[in-house]
Amino acid sequence: MSTALPICPNCQSDAVMKNGRTRHQKQNYKCRDCGRQFVEDPQWRMISEETKGIIDRLLLEKLSLAGIARALEISELWVQQYVNAKYQQVEQEVQVRPKPKRRLAVQMDELWSFVGNKGNKQWVWLALDAQTREIVGVHIGNRSAGSAQALWRSMPPVYRQCAVVYSDFWSAYTEVLPSKRHYAVGKETGKTSYIERFNCTLRQRVSRLVRKSLSFSKKLENHIGAIWLFIHHYNASLSVCSSFPA
């Protein structure tokens, strides 16, 4: 007794023929009318926009990509490809509210991380507005004066023109920052407490930055993209004062 062939899912035609087997040894079919090839009960399913939105939110939490794939019951390979494309599109420039030209206070610090293995160190350089708590400068690179210069250039012009900067005693800051507006201070002064606290937040929210983790980055571009993605989310979620004292 012959088994009826399935209907084409594309054009609903019954002019369907067998067309070999897939690499998973499932029967493949081909529609004579529209040329569509298909299998019955396919394992692949289209990822909905709702699921993509959930992935976007989970990327801002301390979850590995494998953990996201398990939680949502989707392919880890698909998640990796989706994340690769997303991180490539993340803008690598700070988004902050406009500030008037007046005295501003900025706290700077650098955070150790790595890509691939602990021998490939990648330092996350950050600058934070002490009043609004916005991240106003970011650079990821080595721990040289060149990276300190890149951090300085990453800040909006109003900060480079007006801000007083507090940092630790790392020599790269002294080489780069304007001497009349730079103060190297110890932790006991509290002048860098906000940026140090943000470093803790970053480590707690971005799994790639956890010191003992199986979720570390294997690709520098994704490492940078993940950090920038969280910083954009962080700045956007802040309740920032809309007015500033003269």
Results as ranks from 00 to 15, higher is better:
residue 24 H to P: 00
residue 140 I to T: 04
residue 120 N to T: 02
residue 96 V to Q: 02
residue 190 G to P: 08
residue 58 L to Y: 13
residue 137 G to K: 02
residue 100 P to F: 03
residue 93 E to F: 00
residue 172 A to H: 09
residue 126 L to I: 12
residue 69 A to W: 04
residue 166 Y to P: 04
residue 13 S to P: 03
residue 239 S to A: 13
residue 212 K to N: 11
residue 140 I to R: 00
residue 56 D to W: 07
residue 106 V to S: 00
residue 146 G to D: 15
residue 208 R to S: 10
residue 149 Q to L: 12
residue 96 V to C: 09
residue 242 S to E: 15
residue 110 E to H: 06
residue 60 L to P: 11
residue 89 Q to D: 12
residue 160 R to D: 09
residue 4 A to G: 03
residue 1 M to R: 12
residue 211 R to Q: 12
residue 37 Q to Y: 00
residue 8 C to H: 00
residue 104 L to E: 09
residue 11 C to A: 06
residue 241 C to R: 15
residue 169 F to W: 12
residue 123 W to P: 11
residue 36 R to L: 10
residue 190 G to M: 10
residue 86 K to L: 15
residue 37 Q to R: 11
residue 197 R to G: 15
residue 229 L to V: 02
residue 155 M to Y: 08
residue 185 V to T: 12
residue 227 I to H: 07
residue 229 L to Q: 09
residue 6 P to K: 06
residue 85 A to I: 05
residue 226 A to R: 04
residue 110 E to T: 08
residue 43 Q to W: 02
residue 122 Q to S: 06
residue 61 E to W: 00
residue 51 T to S: 04
residue 183 Y to G: 01
residue 68 I to L: 02
residue 243 S to Y: 14
residue 129 D to N: 14
residue 72 L to D: 07
residue 18 K to R: 15
residue 113 S to L: 01
residue 161 Q to S: 11
residue 113 S to H: 03
residue 229 L to R: 11
residue 236 A to P: 02
residue 113 S to D: 02
residue 135 I to N: 05
residue 99 K to T: 06
residue 186 G to F: 01
residue 28 N to D: 02
residue 224 I to C: 08
residue 102 R to E: 09
residue 43 Q to H: 11
residue 17 M to Q: 12
residue 75 S to A: 07
residue 84 N to S: 13
residue 63 L to A: 09
residue 197 R to D: 09
residue 158 V to P: 06
residue 212 K to R: 15
residue 157 P to S: 07
residue 183 Y to M: 08
residue 79 V to K: 10
residue 58 L to V: 09
residue 5 L to T: 11
residue 6 P to A: 11
